[in-house]
């Protein structure tokens, strides 16, 4: 009998949006494969998701280590046996705040390697697992700044612009094989990624957000939950803003 339980691989699952996505998909009956570098944090998320009834495996991997990522997918391929990988929810990412003149090119390379390079490699490896079943879904994390730009975050915005371009292109390329490709584009979400913002800066940002408040990780996870549901089966190539009207 073919199992109907969707299997979702979530990167960046130790914290923030990835953790919230794991809890959301656990609630809605997904089997989970969780990835990040911090094993202890992953174990805690695993326990939280198991308490919701989900089957959860965890892997501590630095996604900028290409050989380690390839080895990880070998392991996943074996572990899945005949089961299909239903969703890749790629939340792992970092932000870099620096003005152009103060951007070290070595730092740019590191950010590119994670936000762009690892994203391409994950899409490549996950789509190969999906192709055989002629179904699957790649869900990436873009950002409001990909479209709008952000002074002092040019390189970070460029990496997210690359993610959006990847979504559009891969939706076209992989659509004929039954694989959907989408992204969510959060605005300002209160996670570790944005924890360094001062209260004053947050107040300034809130004034520009239609809903006049900052977003929470579970609000992004709700959109992820929808895009990973059968209700979204005809949605591909879409970048869904979850930003309280920040981009309006």
């Amino acid at each position: 009998m073919i199992s109907k339980t969707p299997v979702s691989l979530i990167t960046g699952a130790s914290r923030g949006i990835g953790r919230a996505a794991a809890l959301k998909l656990a609630q809605t009956g997904h089997e989970l494969i969780l990835i990040a570098r911090d094993l202890i944090a992953l174990e805690q998320v695993q326990a939280d998701c198991q308490a919701l009834g989900a089957l959860v495996s965890i892997y501590a991997v630095d996604l900028t280590d290409r050989d380690a990522v390839t080895a990880l997918f070998r392991q996943i391929h074996t572990a899945l046996q005949d089961k299909a990988l239903s969703h890749l929810v790629h939340c792992a990412g970092q932000m870099q705040d620096s003005l152009l003149a103060m951007t070290r090119l070595t730092d740019m390379d590191k950010l590119m390697a994670l936000n762009v390079g690892a994203t391409v490699q994950l899409c490549q490896l996950a789509s190969k697992l999906m192709l055989r079943h002629k179904t699957g879904h790649l869900l990436l994390l873009s950002s409001k700044v990909a479209e709008a730009g952000s002074a002092g975050q040019a390189v970070y915005a460029a990496t997210k612009g690359a993610v959006s371009a990847l979504v559009k292109s891969l939706a076209k390329e992989l659509g004929p094989t039954g694989i959907r490709v989408n992204a969510v584009a959060p605005g300002f979400i209160e996670t570790d990624l944005t924890a360094h913002y001062s209260e004053e800066k947050k107040q300034q940002l809130m004034a520009q957000i239609s809903l006049r408040r900052l977003g929470q990780a579970d609000e992004v996870a709700a959109a992820i939950g929808f895009l990973c549901s059968t209700d979204a089966g005809y949605i591909t190539g879409h970048i869904l803003a979850v930003d309280g009207g920040f981009s309006v």
């Binding site: 074996t78 055989r132 002629k134």
Partner: peptide
């Protein structure tokens, strides 16, 4: 090209290998 992608996935699965790019 689409069938080529499907072929790679099929071969990887049947022979339990992961092919380099």
């Amino acid at each position: 090209s689409t069938a080529h992608m499907l072929l790679i996935a099929e071969l990887e699965n049947v022979f339990n290998v992961m092919l380099d790019t």
